[in-house]
Design a protein around this nucleic acid. Sequence first.
DNA 1: CATGATAAATAAATTTTACTCACTGTATAT
DNA 2: ATATACAGTGAGTAAAATTTATTTATCATG
Lengths: 206, 206
Amino acid sequence: MKEENLSVPPGKQKIVRAMRSLLEERAFETITIAEIAAEAGVTEGLLYKYFRDKRDLLHHVLKEHYEMFITQIERDLQGIDGALNKLRKIIWASIERYANHKVFARIIILETRNSAKYFETEAYALVRQFVGIVDGAIKEGLAAGAIRADLPPTLIRNTIFGAIEHSCLRRVIFNEAVSTNETSRLIADLIFNGIASRPKQERGKT
Amino acid sequence: MKEENLSVPPGKQKIVRAMRSLLEERAFETITIAEIAAEAGVTEGLLYKYFRDKRDLLHHVLKEHYEMFITQIERDLQGIDGALNKLRKIIWASIERYANHKVFARIIILETRNSAKYFETEAYALVRQFVGIVDGAIKEGLAAGAIRADLPPTLIRNTIFGAIEHSCLRRVIFNEAVSTNETSRLIADLIFNGIASRPKQERGKT
DNA sequence: CATGATAAATAAATTTTACTCACTGTATAT
DNA sequence: ATATACAGTGAGTAAAATTTATTTATCATG
């Protein structure tokens, strides 16, 4: 099923799998090197053969997740027409990832941004790439007149990401379920149309 | 200036002040007990007289900040009429806090939610209280018809907080400035009216 | 105003954790 | 055969967090 097998030593794979497995249940901070090694069935020293430190391993796990995420989302956006429809799909795909991959959600939402090193990792470079895709959709919407021109694109992006992440917070922390379809539909609706009441005929579908 | 002086031992005060000061510059994880003690001019052991552990100290710092924040916001909301106007003020006051109190912003946005213990602290109880205030304003808006009734209040709240926190992320991480007035105006505008273009006469001020 | 009780603070010991390093086995290519 | 490169080990170290025993200061009361 996985293709990353080639030339990746079994010990390294076991370590990464162990880390993923432990992050499923607990916070990064509470996971010790000794535990990771034990779970992987490997000695502690080996971890430092493949990773600079514990955080580097965390970043590696995130990177692997993010590669799959980006691959998926690029495919997801194929054939979708219209900036708002693209944004809708981006929202849906993001929530779908968080809903079905707790470890991914935990790392992104809770465990990375408090470390300065994160911003120099390959994982963060992938995040920037994704941000570029989103910003592209927003700019397209501005150019086409589908999006109001009096709001900064960065603010729009922040609101989208903020809404998504906050909506998945309890999923990560308290293991609550998230309905991908319903949540993404509602977030798109809110961000596209706002929360203020207005005459019904004015709240269009685009 | 401060009134919390009474019966609070000087050592404890010094420890809390030291922690606040260190959090101004660096991430929680990188701050050691030895540093805190040195900065406070106190021995390491004393910290454990007043706090269960390093995180407990962090939660205490947050609690003190949050008490001030809640006091302030309750005052800020006095005399404001209309749910959307209240929400606007809540957005403004939140950003104002983050913009002017980096330590507060750092703790809330980056350093708490990754620890299970946080959700049993007094600080978190205060957060719940604040959430109650916000939810009250949203419900008021629903009852009065100022807010669309087809969006879950929790989603509205998540979007507001998400937008605020993401807009302050770079302020915390990269020390960038945040314009309170402009940012809060834009966030309120986006959330109240949405990002989709629509005929101008329909985008009301309420 | 001495004194016992209580709280504040210390100093050093202990434990836990992350991380290092010198080494062993093994497979492969020369 | 043997050198080389790589996967993996395991014992060790240093630094960090936390505990404990002890001393110092505070202060109300007989």
